[in-house]
Amino acid sequence: MNAKIKKIDTEYEKNAAKIAELQARQKELEKQRTEYENLDIIGLVRSMGVTPEELAAIMQAARQNPAVPATTEKEEPDYAETEND
């Protein structure tokens, strides 16, 4: 076999092994990220004293009416858009 082909095959195999290793590491990092996000969410819910039933009701209401603003404060008009030229 041609020496150049052998060299390419060897490099190809090394790269394939590195890719597999990096993909496995990526999956592990995604798993860890999800676990920490879930812990943050659970901590926030518990700190607010919300029961699982109340949380489910809040989430259901949000799905049914997503246009409801998160705050009840009135927004101030943006006067920069109404300038006279």
Rank of each mutant, 00 (worst) to 15 (best):
Q26C: 06
G43N: 05
I19K: 15
R63W: 03
D40I: 05
Q60G: 03
D78T: 09
A17M: 06
A3S: 10
V50T: 09
M48H: 09
A24G: 06
N38S: 06
N65M: 07
M1S: 12
E81Q: 15
L29P: 04
T34Y: 08
E21Q: 14
A3E: 05
N65E: 14
Q26G: 01
Q26H: 11
K4E: 15
K18P: 00
I58L: 08
E37A: 07
L39E: 11
K7W: 06
P77H: 06
Y79R: 15
Q26P: 03
Y36D: 02
E73M: 12
A61N: 00
R46M: 00
A57E: 13
P66G: 08
K18E: 07
I42A: 11
N2M: 03
Y79E: 10
D40V: 04
Q64V: 13
V45H: 04
D40F: 05
E75L: 15
K18A: 12
Q64G: 11
A56I: 01
R46N: 15
G49I: 10
Y79D: 08
E83Q: 14
P66D: 04
E21W: 08
E83Y: 03
K14C: 07
E37R: 05
I5W: 12
R25V: 12
D85P: 08
Q64T: 11
E81L: 13
E53K: 15
M59G: 01
L55P: 03
A56W: 00
I41S: 10
N65W: 02
